[in-house]
Computed example of a mutant assay.
Amino acid sequence: METILYIEDDPVLRENTREMLEFSNFKVLTAKNGKIGVDLALKHSPDIILCDIIMPVWDGYKVFQVLKENRLTYRIPFIFVSAKVDKEDIRSGMNLGADDYLTKPFEEEELISTIQSRLEKYSKLQENYSFPLKNSAIAPVNNLSDLKDYIELNGEYYDFKRKSIIYREDENANYIYLLEDGIVKNYKMDEYGKELITGLYKKGDLLGFYSFGSSSLYAETSTALEDGMAYRILSLEFRKLLKLNPGLTLELADLFSENLTNLRKHLLDTAYGSVLKKTTYTILQFAENIQETPEDSIKISRSDLASVAGISTESLIRSLSQLKKDNLIDIEGRNIKILDLKKLHTIR
């Protein structure tokens, strides 16, 4: 039976919710303010914490901060519960690193579903480590899969809008990012102000690391091609993980090498390929490396596609028209659907 700590200053809501949770076979601890809630969390180490924001003594943000700074409680899933529904309030809670956010009043089904979802996610993450996450100072991060789990579990929530800058070239490389949703492009600017695309990233990809041993600057600019979100940790924390886990360093070195090989191929295609070849290569990049399956429609603006291909939007549109005429692709509005993947690979 999982234990839930519910911190809420409203006595009626607190008791009604307790009964609701107990009816769903949870063991429930309750606290009427944030200070009592922290004391209970440290004493009982619950499986998950639900916490109101506006409370006497300590508010929900203070509770979250204190628990995340304690090695005995910082991994416990934490859900803010509040009548506040403003997007800025939700973003504030999520940016702190909370796992979820429930707005009052909530339905029983919504409450139970959210709790079970977070418990299942935590359980899956826990299975990937050689010893339990809870009550441990830091679990081993032996490989890239462990690193992604670590960033997702401990990282700061970071959302972004289409065309927003995630980081800029020559800024201090303060964060390592794990992309959870959306598509991101990295690029450098040449002396004439033209973009040189250096990478495309999708869900599950890491970006932002440029040095294994010391602080560094971002070597390129990172921009969102669509709305999305990521988790991020400080680069200092990332470097500490590398020192503690030599196996992770080796895997990242292999990833660097693979990325460099792909970048060289992209630069050669960009430098010497025809406009049609550049267009085709870009479509294949999205289809095979960004989309979940090559058959999915590519839903990217023409200007963004042209930017990735390194050609003008007008040239891209002419090339797309030619590929459609040859029955290699189909176009519906801004969506591009590949009809013959094999023949696209033969375009020169």
Rank of each mutant, 00 (worst) to 15 (best):
A219I: 11
D100C: 04
F23N: 09
E195Q: 12
T103Y: 02
Y129Q: 14
N289H: 05
E237W: 00
L267S: 15
H266S: 13
N186W: 03
I166S: 07
V66C: 04
P11K: 03
E237R: 07
Y175V: 01
Q126N: 13
N95S: 14
K124N: 14
D326T: 00
K87W: 06
K134E: 12
N154D: 08
D47G: 07
I79W: 08
F64Y: 15
A219W: 10
N33Y: 15
T17W: 11
V12G: 02
E180M: 10
K277S: 09
M55R: 03
F23D: 11
L72Q: 06
Y210T: 05
T223W: 00
Y150L: 13
I197A: 11
N245P: 12
L29C: 10
I36N: 10
E226M: 12
E195S: 12
T280D: 15
L102S: 01
L179Y: 07
L119I: 13
M20W: 05
S235Q: 05
E2A: 13
K342H: 02
L320G: 07
S117T: 03
F23K: 13
I311F: 04
K43F: 00
Y150I: 02
H345P: 13
S319P: 09
D254H: 12
N259E: 14
S216M: 04
L29Y: 12
E109G: 05
A253H: 06
P56D: 11
D170H: 04
Y281K: 00
R14N: 07
S145L: 15
A173M: 07
